[in-house]
Amino acid sequence: MIDSKQATDALADINDTVRRVRQSQIYQVSSLVMLMWGVLVFAGNISSWLWPRYGLSFWIGVYVLATAGLFAINAYNYARSRIRTFDRRYLLTFLFIVAFGIFCCVFGQFTPRQQTTFWPVYIMLFYMLAGVWFGTAFIVIGASIIALTLIGYVYIPGMPFLLWMAVVNGGGLFVGGLWMRRS
């Protein structure tokens, strides 16, 4: 029989392992979501740079594709591990976040350049909030993208700002997703 200290150590080991498993699961799914968003955001910015007149249509398309992609990732993950990752509650949360973002853009009367800056900063804020609960990788990725976005907003005038955003936002999410897969 073991003593109370050994039992406490064993329970601490169990709790630590459970915490690591949960974080690993969150990272696995989030990395797939980030890779998808990275590609879509890159494509959205490049398309808006090439055909600025259709910018709004491209971004609506990005959000529709992203929603479909989230359900596809859920189906893939469920087939692989029997764990559901995206359901109606997550869809509703996602819609609330987007709706409030649209509300800010409309009532704030943002210019297209300000909107290009606002959306990544706004979404990355949620990444950083997630990081407080689920793991520091979210905070690092969110803070890096926000900082690079603001640097571009201040120092890169005109349309090249969209190229900058394709690289730092799209590329940042993609690289962040790859990094999270390895964490």
């Binding site: 080991d13 169990i14 392992t17 498993v21 699961q25 764990i83």
Partner: peptide, 11 residues
């Protein structure tokens, strides 16, 4: 113990 803890953390 770690293996069982990890597997029990899953559905």
């Amino acid at each position: 113990l770690k293996i069982m803890a990890a597997l029990n953390a899953l559905p």
